[in-house]
Design a protein around this nucleic acid. Structure first.
Length: 916
RNA sequence: GCCCAGAUGGCGGAAUAGGUAGACGCGCUGGUCUCAAACACCAGUGCCGCGAGGCAUGCCGGUUCGAUCCCGGCUCUGGGUACCA
């Protein structure tokens, strides 16, 4: 009987679906385990072989955990709102809902072919109203809460109102937007609008004027993590800074908790580092500099360098600029600010080295020296960080140094022996000089001493700043969750919870309106109780922030997640996905979870206990070389003899870098009559590792691999390719070896087309092979070292083959071990072995050390210290010979001399353990 | 610039208590089977050398009886971040 993967895979995929093999329910009799994949955005291009890498790993782990007796929650869904579908809609007029549905169907059929063990009954789609109801619900909760720094948690706005009514806002310690202080009387006298505005500064979901990343090409604002190097991540369009009133989430309120709780997570250090850097905690001080009659607050982490301040700088957007600019300087300052406004983010970055700035005409007073220092404006100071104003210490800050050089401002060195003629001395080390009472201290002592003095004099205080900004939550787009907010006389008001979801209306065109409003403004009757509804929609990360909770009970209509389900499944035990979400989704999701935790809706402070980043599978492109102005192509090895152009060629008509000439001629009409210059009768293509993309003709579709090798081979091969976390190019060179292994495994069960197994007791040799494998595979899966476990299977199979093993028990256990990797073939063999139930209900074999023990013996020697070394010994060596061998042959004989060894443990041909 | 990770045959990669470097797979070479091919199986395969032997885990040094592994200093590659005061 031949290994017919096509038949086997179709058969078992159909059976799993029909028998709902992977459906799970809460079951308190079993320990739970929650394995989650980062759900995909269903793009029009479909899945390529890179996408399933993480899914295969998580599937193996899920199947393994089931064999280990766990109740495994392993769901899948779609992150279905987003820009590409809408851009496509603008181009083609097709409704994004329709293209999204088509793409999802395509994804689903591609995933089904690979044989994943998802509980599809729990599928979620972020764009379905039943799902986004809960995204809107969470938003309303955030709108209805504020962050109390005293209790370090979110509390209802009603409580805040009660405080305002009693004593105003002077003593409220909240994470909030700066604004005026008011008394209880003033609060009571406020108009509705004023009250709304005051509360808005406290809400966790709030509307506020802020400088945003505006992408004119996409017609929308973007969050910081959606912009890379001044270009939009989606589309790569330029982004500029613009002040706009936008919905925002007060993520910054949670900065410290997001930082602290990283400690308890089983994530890689590098990923935690990325989050730490993104949160960017820095400890320093706020200090007041008098400028005329004004108190200008600056933030610094180097209070110790205050004696070296030679000027001050304001951000162009700072509110101080207008007040501090003298009439004589006004024209120049206005001109400078107009120029910076025109620059895009990209230009600002690319011009990093160009130092620009302008003098305001005002002078500030150094609070320590009393000296007057000029106040400048420059775009190297950011309005969004600290106070938007700095004290400049050119001797010890490279940016200040560059600025001082450019504008000829004095540079005063403050650290003994430092040379600031060519560059600043930024390191926090050395002994202070020229620094009044700080002189003679080390920098490490001086920093806190300076801050203490600042606090003692009442000219400032300790302050911790975070780089993490509040998340901008509005998008001026159609294909996203509508906000459950309407405007009553201009006051943003929440839609009643019972009226959720606010469903996305159908509209005629997906473009902004003539007067620049978002597409939702085109919707007829976009109102709530007669009042206009918000016209922007939520960003992509809204729907992905709490989806892992919804999987716990996606059909319940009374809550995001039921208490019972949440208390059973708790949080994600294993999360697999790409690093690209390190500073986006993984921050937002943690924030969202913590907020819901504060409100008592979820029982764990962190959503994802363990996280693995699978590497990217890159494309391996192939090239042909056309001799210029001809239709002749020259093989890679001979191309240097001609003047050629390198052309990408479809990798699907290239096999092991050999071009299929006929297929090439048929590939495109222009190559119909192509001529070739071959080497050794073959056309060899050049190659390069690049991103997998359509335009480079290097996309490999998993369907093709399933056709020609089968899903089991694809699964096994993707794991065999290398460590899960490593990025690697897709290369089918080794796939035959993996396929060969499966065929060999299949043949172990048969003799002349007949199932042929012996029922006797396994031999000692067979048991040794089997139990070594049980140990190795179990350990490897636990450590996500799937590539080495595939090798272990190959080695074990070779050994069993050498032993001519056809023992039923041994092969049955081997099948169970292999089942998580290649479930189809294992199900088939399992059923041929007479089992009626799916192999997923089997138990992972128990490892028995007895079977794998080496021939070990111990005997006393004398020696101090403890060490191990290796030595070659003949088989069946006796103790005396062994000792002699150790002393004579070992590289360590010299070292052993004169020491007293107590005991040496010998394994023939292997390790000898020497104990003191 | 800063932070993180990595560098091992012709190739992907093993070796994670400091102890036979190169497992396993690909590729390549030779052989068996076959009319032939495919499949399968057997043997060989780090480099140099006819050989004995020598050299080998990016480079330079150190610790150790012994270093791919630990320490110091470089080089290069990949990822993150970018005026965050």
């Amino acid at each position: 009987m031949e290994y017919n993967y096509k038949e086997i895979e179709q058969k078992w995929q159909a059976r799993w679906a029909a028998e709902k093999t992977f459906r799970v329910k809460e079951d308190s009799s079993k320990p739970k385990y929650y394995v989650l994949d980062m759900f995909p955005y269903p793009s029009g291009a479909g899945l390529h072989v890179g996408h399933p890498l993480g899914y295969i790993a998580s599937d193996i782990y899920s199947r393994y955990k089931r064999l280990k007796g766990f109740n495994v929650l392993h769901p899948m869904g779609y992150d279905a709102f987003g820009l590409p579908a809408e851009q496509y809609a603008i181009q083609t007029g097709q409704h994004p809902a329709k293209t999204t549905r088509n793409n999802i169907n395509r994804y689903r059929s591609q995933m089904d072919r690979i044989g994943f063990s998802y509980d599809w009954n729990r599928e979620v789609r972020t764009c379905s109203p039943g799902y986004y109801k809960w995204t809107q619900w969470a938003f309303l909760k955030m709108f209805g809460h504020w962050y109390n720094n005293e209790s370090s948690k979110a509390e209802p706005v009603e409580k805040l109102v009660a405080i305002f009514e009693k004593e105003g806002n002077a003593n409220v310690n909240a994470a909030c937007t700066e604004g005026p202080v008011f008394s209880a009387e003033e609060w009571k006298a406020f108009s509705e609008k004023e009250k709304s505005d005051a509360l808005m500064r406290y809400r966790i979901a709030y509307q506020g004027e802020t400088s945003v990343n505006w992408c004119p090409k996409l017609g929308t604002v973007l969050a910081n993590d959606e912009v890379k190097e001044g270009l939009s991540v989606r589309g790569g369009f330029p982004v500029e800074q613009k002040k706009m009133k936008q919905w925002q989430l007060r993520v910054s309120a949670y900065a410290q908790r997001l930082l602290d709780d990283l400690e308890g997570l089983d994530w890689t250090e590098s990923l935690k580092d990325m989050q730490r850097n993104w949160i960017g905690r820095s400890q320093g001080a706020e200090m007041i500099f008098k400028v005329g009659n004004w108190d200008v607050k600056i933030f610094t982490t180097r209070a110790d360098t205050v004696f070296g301040v030679t000027f001050m700088v304001l951000a162009p957007e700072s509110e101080w600029v207008e007040r501090l600019t003298t009439p004589e300087c006004k024209a120049a300052v206005d001109e400078y600010i107009a120029q910076t406004k025109k620059k895009t983010e990209r230009e600002r970055i690319s011009e990093t080295k160009k130092v620009t700035g302008v003098f305001t005409g005002s002078y500030g007073t150094n609070p320590f020296t009393g000296e007057k220092v000029p106040v400048w404006v420059s775009d190297y100071v950011l309005s969004g960080y600290g106070t938007g104003a700095i004290m400049a210490v050119p001797a010890h800050d490279s940016r200040d140094w560059a600025f001082a050089k450019r504008f000829n401002l004095p540079i005063i060195p403050l650290i003994e022996g430092c040379d600031v003629s060519e560059s600043s001395f930024d390191a926090k080390e050395g002994t202070m000089i020229n620094s009044g009472f700080l002189t003679g201290m080390s920098v490490k002592e001086a920093i806190p001493a300076a801050i203490d003095e600042v606090e003692r004099r009442g000219i400032g205080k300790r302050k911790i700043n975070y780089r993490l900004r509040d998340a901008i939550f509005s998008r001026q787009r159609y294909w996203g969750e509508p906000f459950p907010i309407y405007y009553k006389d201009g006051i943003p008001s929440p839609v009643d919870e019972k009226d959720l979801p606010v469903t996305l209306p159908s509209i005629s065109s997906f473009l902004p309106t003539e007067n620049g409003e978002p597409p939702l403004a085109r919707a007829k009757d976009w109102t709530y109780n007669g009042y206009p509804l918000e016209t922007s929609t939520m960003p992509g990360f809204a729907g992905s922030s709490a989806y892992y909770l919804r999987y716990m009970g996606p059909h319940n209509s009374y809550g995001l997640v039921s208490r019972e389900a949440n208390e059973y499944w708790r949080n994600v035990d294993l999360y697999i996905g790409g690093t690209e979400h390190a500073t986006g989704h993984l921050i937002y999701s943690r924030f969202w979870n913590k907020f819901l935790y504060d409100l008592g809706y979820v029982c764990e402070i962190e959503p994802f206990r363990k996280l693995i980043n699978q590497g990217m599978i890159q494309g391996r492109s192939n090239f042909v070389y056309r001799i210029k102005n001809t239709n002749t192509f020259v093989s890679y090895g001979l191309k240097d003899q001609y003047d050629t152009t390198e052309i990408h060629v479809n990798v699907n008509i290239v096999n092991a870098d050999r071009l299929d000439l006929e297929a090439f001629r048929n590939w495109m009409p222009e190559y119909r009559n192509a001529e070739f210059i071959l080497e050794n009768g073959e056309y060899i293509c050049g190659w390069a590792v690049e991103k997998m993309s359509k335009s480079m003709f290097n996309v490999v579709n998993p369907d093709n691999i399933c056709d020609s090798y089968g899903a089991d081979t694809l699964r096994l091969y993707e794991m065999f390719l290398g460590p899960l976390e490593a990025s690697k190019p897709w290369d089918t060179k080794g796939i035959d070896g993996v396929h060969r292994f499966l065929r060999k495994f299949w043949r172990m069960f048969f003799n002349n087309d007949e199932l042929c197994l012996s029922d006797g007791k396994p031999s000692a040799a067979e048991l040794k092979v089997l139990h070594k494998l049980i140990k190795k595979v179990g350990d490897d899966i636990e450590n996500f070292s799937f590539n080495t476990s595939v090798s272990a299977f190959m080695i074990a199979l070779n050994e069993l083959q050498t032993l001519k093993c056809n023992n039923r028990e041994v092969l049955e256990q081997f099948t169970i071990l292999l089942a998580p990797f290649t479930p189809h073939i294992c199900e088939e063999l399992w059923s041929l072995l007479g089992h009626e139930e799916s192999i997923s209900g089997a138990r992972f074999p128990e490892y028995n050390e007895e079977y794998t023990k080496e021939n070990t013996f111990e005997y006393p020697v004398s020696f101090n210290g403890k060490m191990r070394f290796k030595i070659e010994l003949p088989k069946n060596v006796d103790a005396a010979t062994a000792q002699k061998a150790v002393l004579e042959n070992s590289l360590s004989a010299k070292w052993l001399e004169g020491r007293s060894v107590k005991k040496i443990i010998v394994v023939p041909g292997k390790i000898i353990n020497v104990v003191c």
